[in-house]
Structure formats: structure tokens, C-alpha cells
Design a protein around this nucleic acid. Sequence first.
DNA 1: ATCCTACATTGGACTTAGTCCAAGTCAATG
DNA 2: CATTGACTTGGACTAAGTCCAATGTAGGAT
Lengths: 124, 124
Amino acid sequence: MTAQRRVVAEVLDGEHVHLTADEVHARAVAKLPEISRATVYNTLGELVSLGEVLEVTTDKRAKRYDPNAHRPHHHLVCAGCGAIRDVHPTGNPLADLPDSERFGFTVSDVEVTYRGLCPNCSAT
Amino acid sequence: MTAQRRVVAEVLDGEHVHLTADEVHARAVAKLPEISRATVYNTLGELVSLGEVLEVTTDKRAKRYDPNAHRPHHHLVCAGCGAIRDVHPTGNPLADLPDSERFGFTVSDVEVTYRGLCPNCSAT
DNA sequence: ATCCTACATTGGACTTAGTCCAAGTCAATG
DNA sequence: CATTGACTTGGACTAAGTCCAATGTAGGAT
Ligand SMILES: [Mn+2]
Ligand SMILES: [Mn+2]
Ligand SMILES: [Zn+2]
Ligand SMILES: [Zn+2]
């Protein structure tokens, strides 16, 4: 456990945020000025491997890192401003995929992304 | 309707494929050697705007273009080799998102991505 | 306390996917 | 034929991320 890794963990701790690697880097630099982008990428990659952090790719832009890895959830994304909310739909989408639609795959996971407009962006 | 646009449309026509822009370009070049990448990107963008083709981003790599835009469907992706299959789950995931989980958003669309291993990749 | 070594960190070069733009092409219209 | 305007082209540019050789350092061994 180095100072760099501690700082990255601190940045991700707490709120339900969905930060890009560069946003994580910017906040980490505020606490430890000489931390490098490469180290932020390395540390995020390790946290993802450990299952402590999830990668979320809701758009074509940068991947986002989600510290809320323990409570399974899905995402609701605003098409206008990109805002992301955690959502907890009822039902189990895995159960909605019949065997005849699995083509012999071993299906282990499902991601659901809802898209729409947030209250702000839908106020034309 | 120019020769270039016709060729891009031809490449996407037919099978249920999910090609990247560069794959579309490679196949287009085989029919019209001097077509440029920029034109392929322009034409794909127009087809997406017209609703004739869907953009699919199942991984962090390149976007894929899906000509199967008229029959709504979702995707099953192999974590090993990246193979993509169209799937038609039962149920309506939009109905599974209660109002209390919509945070005032106008929710218009939902994408579901199933992940697992294809028969080939799961044979250890 | 000092040395050693394995591992972590760094900065920069490199890659991939995509966007942007000024210049060139071309077909239709007048 | 000349004008016009949409379409195309190649190349420069950008954003996000990866890779790597050189350097730094934590912490166990002596
Ligand atoms: Mn989340
Ligand atoms: Mn499809
Ligand atoms: Zn919004
Ligand atoms: Zn596979």
C-alpha cells in the first residue's frame, strides 16, 4: 500500500460517483501533486481486478469508474448532459433470457442502461 | 445517392452483423478502392441519424454498426472472443423501472447487454 | 542502521478510434 | 459554358488509453 494507491482509493471513496480516469487523476493530483496518469490507470485496473470498483461505459467517451461495486445496480443516463444515476430495477433480466436465446453461451452477467432526459434537460 | 453511399449500404445489408467502422471501410474498399475513411464515417453517421443503423458499444473498443434496426433486440457478448449474438429476451425492462427509480427522468430507451462465454470459449 | 531486491512509479512515446477541415471533384442547373 | 453546392478526400489533429525503459522506494534480511 503506497501513498499513490491510498490517494486513488480516497478519491473513489464515499459518494456514488462515476468518474473518468482523468477526473480521478485530477482529484488525486490535488492531494498528491506528482502522481502520474500511468499510476492512476494501474491502480484503477487493480481495483477493477479485485472487484472493488466497476468499469462503466455508458457512452463512446471515456470509461467511468464506479466504487459502488457491492450493491448490484444499473444505470440511468441523460442523453442531454450525460448525468448518471444508479437505479435498482425490479425483476431479474437474466431470467428473461430463455435457453433458446442463449446459443450455448454460459451467461454470467447482464448490464442494463436506461436512457432518457434528466429533469433539467427535458425542460426544453 | 452516390456510389460511395451505395457501397456502404451494401456492406451493411444482409446478415445480422456488427461491424466496426474500419471493417466497413475494408469491405467497402474491396468494392470501390478509393473510398475514404472519412466518407465511411460520414455515411455511417447519416444512417444512424436516419434510424437505419444502430450504434452498438459492447466493449471499450470501437463502436459497431448494426443494420438490424427495425426489429428491436439486445445483445449477448462473449467475454472471451468478443462474438456478438442478437437476442430477444421476454419481458420489458422499461416496465421494471418503477417511478421511484426514475428521478424525474423521461426514460425513452433501454439497452441490455448479456455477457458470458460462447460454446467455443467455455470449452476451457 | 545499512543493504538489497522486488515491486511501484514516472514520463514520454506510441496506438487506436474518431473528428475536423481545407481543398478538390462532380453533376445538375441556368 | 459557367456557377453552384453538395459530396469526397487525405491528412492533420484529438482523446483515451497502453506500453516501456529508467528510476525510486518499501520493507525484509543481515
Ligand atoms: Mn453506479
Ligand atoms: Mn444486433
Ligand atoms: Zn441532463
Ligand atoms: Zn467466445
